[in-house]
Nucleic acid binder design. Sequence first.
DNA 1: CATCGTTGTTCCAACGATGTAAAGACCGAG
DNA 2: CTCGGTCTTTACATCGTTGGAACAACGATG
Lengths: 329, 329
Amino acid sequence: MATLKDVARLAGVSVKTVSNVVNGYSFVKPDNRARVEAALEATGYRPNLGARNLRRGRTGFIALVLPELSIPYFAELAGLVIAAAQEHEWNVLIEQTFGTLSGERLALASLGPHLVDAAILSPEALQVEDFQLSVPAVMLGEHAVDVPLSRVGIDNVAAATFAVRHLISLGRRRIAAIGANPQRGTAALRLEGYRAALAEAGLPFDSSLVVPALNYHRADGAAAMKALLDMRNPPDAVFCFNDLLAVGAMRTAAERFVRVPRDLAIVGFDNNDESAYSSPSLTSIAPDKAAIARAAVDLLRERAGSPDIELDDVQTPFSLQVRESTVTR
Amino acid sequence: MATLKDVARLAGVSVKTVSNVVNGYSFVKPDNRARVEAALEATGYRPNLGARNLRRGRTGFIALVLPELSIPYFAELAGLVIAAAQEHEWNVLIEQTFGTLSGERLALASLGPHLVDAAILSPEALQVEDFQLSVPAVMLGEHAVDVPLSRVGIDNVAAATFAVRHLISLGRRRIAAIGANPQRGTAALRLEGYRAALAEAGLPFDSSLVVPALNYHRADGAAAMKALLDMRNPPDAVFCFNDLLAVGAMRTAAERFVRVPRDLAIVGFDNNDESAYSSPSLTSIAPDKAAIARAAVDLLRERAGSPDIELDDVQTPFSLQVRESTVTR
DNA sequence: CATCGTTGTTCCAACGATGTAAAGACCGAG
DNA sequence: CTCGGTCTTTACATCGTTGGAACAACGATG
């Protein structure tokens, strides 16, 4: 692999002159510049990023800390973050926490300023005292505890209200919620939105219709739905706090021969790619994931430069994708 | 951020002695070691990986080049590769190519030895002449052109044969295939396995039942299925070359009120997480993804050390997950 | 007590890049 | 022909780390 030294020798100039050419420094004589450029071409020189970053005091990487890539929402988001970061010459380092406290602590601990310039976090279990980060960071979504970090995400309360309002507008009256979880910040907000929509329509809040979910996997949704269908007076609609829960719920409904949407309308949250193709297809709150990714990276770019610690809260847009799980064709 | 120098000053020893302690060098006097360790603790020292790797001539990163994280198979695989790499103190850099030739070339070009120690590739469109890699690499799956790289993956012909044999054993006689594509190495092999199973059972090969797919997304599967159902004499089973195609096909079947599996049995390939939860759930060839990830990383570890260029072909195990899309409960 | 081998420590150079300061080249003005 | 200023290039130090050689201390050996 060619180094600056090799190029310099070939071009017959000093190492620094080559460096100047590579970095676009103005004052280089045209003929020297030409010779250097020819030498760069001939050697196929590529800067050694490690060395450059060592000298410059940055790493060229940002970390993306998330529960698991096998969760479609995070996989899709990760793809978009990588694309957004690439535009600013950042490489993305993905750390999986598996949603556990120890996993999250481990990931955070490995995040020194020597490894990454900044971080995007999607924590689930972290405690306040864990947020002693050594690099600038933004948070995606909401967290259960108040945390001294800027955040990017949609307005969860508004989105949840919107979703439940949709169910109410379809004439549903016994509307369940799957996904309550005191550990999760977003869960509390979505529950709040759910209650707000009920209240607004003058419907009673029935806590037996609120089913908690420890994790947000398909299996949890399926189990929760079983519990709901076993009730004496089962619901006529369910608001699931993410699409995986909804897919699980739909699966259980199918197994029990409950017709969706006729007997039971279902709304999800996240609008995973797969949700458009299930049968029936899933109505879902659709956050603008690309906007989230872009906003997070942009925020880090500001933060990485100046050390002012002004907390931001960037609200990205969302919409409701209405599909067959709530409305018949 | 503390450096070796800071620790050395605090402990009253030389920088190298601290380095020796950090790297577990044996011959350090117990009391010095203790003082150094205390100083390490006190300063919260973390080695600067950039500097270390610069000195050691490695980067600590491997690249994972894949089409897109929003494709579940690759997302799941990426998660497993990250986990496997972590065990060997490697960080993973994910590059998305979006399955295009230009995207793949771009990704490969950015892969110098200064950035990564090795690479795991999942190419789709690359030509032979593109494989001038400057770092050791392994390939996942099969490629259309013969390529001078070791590979890891399942036996595609055998797996496809196995899948189609399953359909035949259920009494299906007009078995279609979705996903033929001359660009893709795996497509040719899966088609070969499909033909082999037909031949073995004495069934005729009908090229009108082989539907090509440009991409392997859900939409492509849906479109292909429409074409099949529009035939004068539609098939009674479909073998889809991946689960996304199968999900799309199932969607179309549902829209056309074709009963699965009674009227039409469907088998997929990849066994995505979502396939266990669709209605009906999807029978699918299940490659051992964790084994693939582990094998790929292990292979790179060997390659990264010695420069011997002996090509390997690691066959990982697979199984057939039989579910409702082929067998009624 | 000179010599030796083992153990423990330090110094120096190097990895490849860039910032700084100083030196060199060049020009026009006085 | 000198001076002062603008360009242009270079030498050197530096980022944080580690390998290698050199050196120092030590008890054991002859």
